[in-house]
Design a protein around this nucleic acid. Structure first.
Lengths: 174, 174
DNA sequence: ACCGTAAGGCTAACGTTGTTAGCCGTCAAG
DNA sequence: CTTGACGGCTAACAACGTTAGCCTTACGGT
């Protein structure tokens, strides 16, 4: 009945593993998220991880689930206006760069995702856009573009990204 | 004196290798771009590649250079208005998804890039924005966001991306 | 004509990665 | 008491990027 993904989805041990995986990822980046490194951190050996997850992708999937959940909550808490919501989106992404990258750089494994999670994460944006899905997607694209280009160091070092953000955000509110 | 990157930068053999690397990437994706697979395609063995490039990153750098050049040319040819330029950007990216991803998903190794290449690729956009760098960056972010979210399959399968693109593009022209 | 050297191949091998096979201890339920 | 699930372990494999070291070919200078 209860359907909290973080609590229901995984056994306690699995949750411990995911927690350490997240810490490893957030502290040292995607390249450091290795089955052996993760096992080390847990005081076990790498092959033991496969007693809990079929492969690394399954483990990463749980990180994606976490990220989607938290994003949804962050957006929900700031869903009074589009600029406010977009700001919250950006803040979350910049606060968790590696997690955000992991979440967005692969294609979404929708079949494996908890039912409704994707929709729930997107709902606040859609609401704030008055149900205009096209505008919602365009705004999302802008926000994601700004964030990921920054994370990937694609803007010149001297670029004023706050100003660029404002320029885009202004254009999107009505 | 002449400074054409594609011609000057590399010896003929190096250019052959880059050409095959590009073909491999575009045909079969980033995961297929392996030193051994590339060598196979060239009829040689993997270690021989290191006679021409110090490592795989150096090889990929040349693909990034190619991509930046071609993007610059595509934008130049469509730089009569912002919507037209953005459309050209999108068209190039969608026509070369794997190359585009390779180009944008890492951080730019600026020290190793030919002098002025980055600026030259960005120039048409800046011009079309009347020198408003903030607006130019915001427009770029939107275009990149739309493209990369699509390439990464982040939009629902039934999403009308042309409509979303138009919604965003409308908002950006003035 | 010779020799040196650069260019460009080769094999063998190493370390790291994800992953599999198979074994063993612990512990609760029948 | 035993059986099975749970959750560790070691040994090993294949694929990856990469290095070391050897060999052939061809060309330019003396």
């Amino acid at each position: 009945m209860s359907e909290c993904p973080t609590t229901d989805r995984l056994t306690p041990r699995k949750r411990e593993i995911v927690t350490e995986a997240r810490a490893l990822l957030e502290e040292h980046g995607a390249a450091a998220l290795t089955m052996r490194a993760l096992a080390d951190r847990l005081g076990i050996k790498a092959p033991s991880l496969y007693k809990h997850f079929p492969d690394k992708a399954a483990l990463e999937l749980e990180l994606i689930v976490l990220s989607l959940q938290e994003t949804g909550e962050a957006l929900e808490a700031a869903a009074d206006s589009l600029p406010s919501l977009m700001k919250a989106y950006r803040a979350y992404a910049l606060a968790h760069p590696h997690l955000y990258r992991l979440n967005t750089e692969r294609s979404l494994p929708r079949e494996a995702l908890p039912e409704g999670l994707e929709a729930r994460a997107a709902a606040p944006l859609l609401r704030v856009c008055g149900g205009d899905v096209d505008m919602a997607r365009a705004a999302w694209a802008f926000a994601h573009g700004m964030v990921i280009l920054q994370l990937n160091d694609r803007f010149p070092a001297d670029a004023d990204l706050t100003a660029a953000w404002e320029a885009g955000a202004d254009v999107f509110e009505g």
